[in-house]
Design a protein around this nucleic acid. Sequence first.
DNA 1: ATCAGCATGTAAGGCGTTACATGATTCA
DNA 2: TGAATCATGTAACGCCTTACATGCTGAT
Lengths: 178, 178
Amino acid sequence: MAREKKIHIVILGLLNHEDLTGYDIKKRIDEAIRFFWNGSFGNIYPALKELEEDKLVKSSSATEGAREKITYHITAKGKKALDAWLGKTQASNELRYETLLKIFFAGASDRETAYRNIEVFEEEVRQDLNILKMHRRALEPIKEEEDHLYYYLTASFGVDTYEAYLKWCEKAKKMLKG
Amino acid sequence: MAREKKIHIVILGLLNHEDLTGYDIKKRIDEAIRFFWNGSFGNIYPALKELEEDKLVKSSSATEGAREKITYHITAKGKKALDAWLGKTQASNELRYETLLKIFFAGASDRETAYRNIEVFEEEVRQDLNILKMHRRALEPIKEEEDHLYYYLTASFGVDTYEAYLKWCEKAKKMLKG
DNA sequence: ATCAGCATGTAAGGCGTTACATGATTCA
DNA sequence: TGAATCATGTAACGCCTTACATGCTGAT
C-alpha cells in the first residue's frame, strides 16, 4: 500500500457499501460527498487501476449491448485498509474558502462589494442547504441501518453548519449596513 | 496578469494593509488566515517574485547587521488587481474534510472508532475556537477601522461555525451511545 | 554555547483539475 | 435527429507541500 491518496479511501468507502462503476462513483461523490470532498474522472479512473493493482478492489467487466461497463468490488484486503484508515485518529482538514478570503480582504474595496459577496455566498449556501435537508429527510427513517446512520450524521453536520453560515450572513449584512 | 494563483491574492490582501516580508506574510497566514486558507514558504517566496515581475508589488531590501530583509509594498497596479478580484462574485470554496470522510464511512468499522474520531475532532475544534475567540475579542474594540471590521467578521464566522461543530459533536456522540 | 526564532530560498514530488478523445444509448 | 446521459479513459498543466539548504541573532 505504497500509494495512499485520499481518493483511494473515498472509493474504498463507497465500494464497502455497494459495488459500483467509475461512473457511479463520480455520481455518488457529486450527490453527497462533494460537500466535504471532491473527485473527478481524471482522478477516479486512475485510482481504480491503482487500487486493483494493489488488490484492494476487484473488477468485473460486463458488456451491455456494445457498451462496456466495469464494476468494482471491494476485497478483504480493501476492507482492512479502510478499517486501518478509520482507526488512525489524525485527520487533515484543509479548507480553501475563497469567500472568506473575500470577506477578510474586503477592506480593499467598498462596502457594496463586500455586501454583494456575502449575498452571493448566502444564495449558494441556501441552495445547498435545501439539498442537505432533502438528504437528511430521506435518511431519517432508515438510519437504523449502520451505514445510513453515518450518512445521516454527515448530512446533519452539513445542515447545522450551513444554518450557522446563514445566521452569520444576516449578522454580517446588518453590520455592513449600520 | 497571466498568473493568478490564489496565494497571489492572499499576499496582495495582506500587503494592502501593511508592508511585510515573506516571513511576516507566513506568520500572518498562520495566525489568522490558516482557518480558511494556507500558505507555505515554498509557496510564498516564488509568488512574491512573480508579483514583483508583474509589478503588483515592489520590494525594498534593508540590511540589519548582516541579515538581509526584503520588505514588500503593494503598488497601484496591485491594488487594482486586488479590487478586481473582490469584484468578481464567483468564489470557489473547496473543502477537504477528512474528519467528515471518517464519519461518512464509519460504518466500515465499529462505533467506538467513530466515537473516538468525533472526540478527536471535538478537541481540535475546541482549541481552535479558543484562538478564534481571542481574535474576536481583540478585534471587537477596534472594528471601527474598516480593515479590522472585516477581520472581526471573519473571526466571528469562525466562532459561529466552530460552535455549531461542537453542538453537532454532542448530538452525534449521544446518537452513537443510544 | 546552544537553541529558538528570524530570514530567504530551491527542488522534487504529489495530487488534483481541466480539457481532450471516443463512442453508445435513450428520450423527446 | 439531436441532446442529454452513460461510460471510460489520457495528457497537460497548475498549484501546493515537504524536505532540503543556508546563515544570522537574541536570549538563557
